[in-house]
Each structure stands twice: as C-alpha cells, then as structure tokens.
C-alpha cells in the first residue's frame, strides 16, 4: 500500500518536474523554484481565504461558518 503510494507520488513528482522544465536544471535551482512556487501558491491561497471570502461574506453574510455546512448536510 505504502509502496504504491510512494510510487504514485514519485511518478507525479517526475511529471511535475517535466512540465515545469525543472527536470533538466541543477538541484539548487529546482529547490529555489519549489520554494518560489510554494510562496506564490500560499499567497494566492491566503489572499483567497482572507480577502475574497471576506468580501463575499460582506455581501452575502458568513460563507464558511454555517450556511455551507448546513447545505452540505442536507443535500
């Protein structure tokens, strides 16, 4: 089970390296791009969480807390 999971992760990590051209660069460059991408996606995530959801909540009331939970439960 664990073996298969590792294999799956390894394979998709390899595909990720290919699609970002990190496959052909040196190790320190790879690590740098990983960090840069991580920072970018974290900032986007935080922005969505705080600003976008906050703005929506301002107009339609609290989004995360009760409404969605209730909808998910009853659907």
């Amino acid at each position: 089970m664990l073996q298969e999971l590792l294999k799956f992760i390894n394979y998709w990590y390899f595909r990720y390296l290919l699609i970002t051209e990190l496959y052909m660069v040196e190790k320190w460059e790879r690590v740098m791009i990983h960090i840069v991408l991580l920072i970018i996606f974290t900032i986007i995530g935080l922005f969505n969480w705080i600003v976008v959801l906050g703005a929506i909540g301002y107009f339609v009331g609290p989004v995360i807390n009760d409404n969605i939970k209730r909808q998910v439960m009853y659907s």
């Binding site: 699609i19 970002t20 051209e21 990190l22 660069v25 040196e26 460059e29 740098m32 791009i33």
Partner: peptide, 12 residues
C-alpha cells in the same frame, strides 16, 4: 515552463 527556464538561466 519556458519562462521558468529563462528565469533560472538569468539567475544562474
């Protein structure tokens, strides 16, 4: 990905 490659190239 090409932009990433260029960016890494210039930094390097």
């Amino acid at each position: 990905s090409f932009y990433i490659l260029m960016f890494l190239g210039y930094i390097s």
